[in-house]
Design a protein around this nucleic acid. Structure first.
Length: 469
RNA sequence: GCCCCCAUCGUCUAGUGGCCUAGGACACCACCCUUUCAAGGUGGCGGCACGGGUUCGAAUCCCGUUGGGGGUGCCA
């Protein structure tokens, strides 16, 4: 076993969080570059909230962003619950060594004492009572005098006065270990050398460091990265915010774009370019360079990154990436009408027009729908304007007679009709576009007409002629 | 309440005492290109929270103020 050992320790209580994904990526980049190991440990000791299915969700989400067991740097998953005996044994060692003591006060009694003394928290009442283990008795850590200095790789030294830290619980009244203990024991057991996690854990760190020391171990390198926040500058929450990594995957964000964007939250590549390949990120990412202040998770910017990545795809790769979206059950057209060849032909034109893959179906739906879904506003505007009806009628006649049915001829034909009616092409195409696609915006029109064919084009043009308004 | 962290354009950031008249990206605006919409190109708007120090010199160092955030469980 050589090289630094990193870890992430998510609890399986819901979808995998984008903030967790960023932390994972930071750990992953470091583990990979330093020739170290990335350990996945599932902290499944909160029985009330755990769900086994979330564990697979975490594994899948990590794999999606390129962190998977296929890579030799990856180790795990381990399950914290499997180590329960170890946690309890460590607690007992702490008790034997005089670093911990039992207490039989109920939460209500603790509160009453705190209220009476005017000092918040547990006051160390049972420190010297010499209580033995017993039902309903919790084991508390005896916080030593002095100060605890946490050497943090991103923030420098953080000093805590020990008298502001209460004698915290190690073992519950029912004998089971709490997170603080389990987390440290597991990190020791797994020889974790670097604990890189979100800043919300910083206030717990002195407690954990004391535990490392009381257990006779040198603490790891600590590194607390700023939290990811929402528009209100509050920590992203599963309740209010769209935080599930899986959700972004399902909306058609490319994993490379997500990874690149996430890495720029709290860190920036050297130079002026933000869109950089993972290889460069892995080479340049440094823990010391991580920003100190919280970063807003900006979906607009994520989407811009995603658009860049989509456009950088080869047409073949783009078509392949679209496949789950154009062949899904949720597609707006009858599935059997989808024609891969038609989609492949239009694909290059939609590639520059979407920010996410989920936008693709709506962009091409008119090609596979029996009839386009006409937007009333677009209809009113395009067909109601002066000369629109004339252009429409002339186009039906001309397109019925046009010799070669291709985009160039169709465009030239409509240009002439427009000119005859005193319109530029931009204006003349409007009613045609609405007739064919149902909307006023969409992919380039004549290429679409070519794909649709003469018969269907004329049918739609005549259908719109028959409408009023 | 107590403890801890943070503070550069609206947002993400570059900047580690002189290269800063503060750079880039997203967003926004304008123009160009143009068959709509995009994409692309060009340009623009816009910031060192405030007050004191230190220094020949401060966005950068120190102190304070203000403002944010996080933590304060027999949750993780």
């Amino acid at each position: 076993m050589s090289g630094p050992r990193f870890r992430i320790a998510p609890s399986p209580t819901g979808f995998f969080h984008v903030g967790g994904a960023r932390t994972a990526l930071y750990n992953w980049a470091l583990a990979r570059r330093l020739g170290g190991t990335f350990v996945l440990r599932i902290e499944d000791t909160d029985e009330a909230r755990n769900r086994p299915e979330w564990t697979q969700g975490i594994i899948d989400a990590l794999a999606w962003i390129g962190i998977s067991s296929d890579d030799p740097a990856f180790e795990g998953p381990y399950f914290q619950s499997a180590n329960a005996a170890l946690h309890v044994a460590a607690a007992h060692r702490l008790f034997e060594a005089g670093h911990a003591y039992y207490c039989d006060l109920s939460p209500e009694e603790i509160q009453a004492r705190a209220k009476a003394s005017g000092k918040p928290g547990y006051d160390g009442y049972s420190r010297a009572r010499g209580l033995a283990a017993g039902p309903g008795r919790v084991l508390r850590f005896k916080v030593p005098e002095g100060t605890t200095v946490v050497h943090d790789a991103v923030r420098g030294d953080v000093v805590f006065a020990n008298d502001t830290i209460e004698d915290f619980v190690l073992l519950r009244g029912n004998g089971t270990p709490i997170f603080m203990l389990a987390n440290v024991v597991d990190d020791i057991e797994m020889h974790i050398s670097h604990v890189l996690r979100a800043e919300e854990h910083l206030p717990n760190t002195p407690k954990q460091q004391m535990l490392w020391e009381a257990l006779g171990e040198a603490p790891p390198v600590w590194a607390h990265v700023p939290v990811v926040v929402n528009e209100q500058r509050k920590k992203l929450s599963k309740r209010r915010d769209k935080v599930a990594l899986e959700g972004y995957r399902d909306e058609g964000y490319l994993p490379e774009a997500m990874v690149n964007y996430l890495m720029t939250l709290g860190w920036a590549p050297k130079g002026d370019a933000e869109i950089v390949p993972w290889s460069q990120i892995e080479r340049d990412f440094r823990i010391e360079d991580v920003t100190h202040s919280p970063a807003f998770f900006d979906i607009k910017k994520l989407t811009a990154f995603n658009g860049e990545y989509i456009r950088a795809l080869s047409v073949e790769a783009f078509i392949a990436a679209c496949q789950p979206f154009v062949e899904a059950a949720t597609v707006p057209w009858p599935q059997e009408r989808f024609d891969p060849a038609v989609f492949a032909a239009i694909a290059p034109l939609v590639q520059t027009r979407v920010g996410t893959l989920a936008e693709v179906p709506r962009m091409v739906d008119f090609l596979f729908l029996p009839d386009p879904e006409i937007d009333p506003q677009a209809h009113a505007k395009a067909l109601g304007s002066a000369g629109a009806r004339e252009v429409l009628a002339a186009t039906v006649a001309a397109y019925a007679a046009v010799e070669t049915w291709d985009a160039d001829s169709l465009k030239a034909t409509l240009e002439e009709i427009g000119a005859a009616n005193g319109m530029k092409l931009g204006k003349a195409q409007a009613p045609i576009r609405v007739a064919i696609t149902g909307r006023s915006v969409g992919p380039p029109l004549f290429e679409a007409l070519e794909l649709l064919g003469r018969d269907e084009t004329l049918r739609r043009l005549r259908a719109i002629e028959a409408t009023s308004g």
